[in-house]
Amino acid sequence: MSPFFLWIAMNFTEAPHLFYLKVGGILCGFGDIAALWFLLKVAEVMHGKKPKKRFAILAFFLLINPIQAIPGNSGMFFVVQFLVLGIPYLILAYTAVTEAPAIVAYIKKRATTRTRT
């Protein structure tokens, strides 16, 4: 293992670190927003109405997600990443907490309907 760690210590400088942070941050942002988007779609099917505000906020943050490529150092990158993904993450937590009872009720209802049929 030592040569492997020695190679990292010699070659993994600030430039590749920042580059991979940015790439990882942008991909992670797209992944997170996609997961939340489909979770909201699930909520839409359950309730029969679209949570328009949350979709609009998500669409905005999806558009600004690539600005994570701008920061020139990793400290600034953390701040920009927080600004871009902080609110979608809060929406994710809010959706998970508020939709949990509805998911239980929806799946139970479906199971009951299936038993009857």
């Binding site: 992670c28 992944g31 996609a34 997961a35």
Partner: peptide
């Protein structure tokens, strides 16, 4: 995280 987030999506 990227792999897990895409899986969740």
């Amino acid at each position: 995280y990227v792999i897990l987030e895409v899986s969740a999506a």
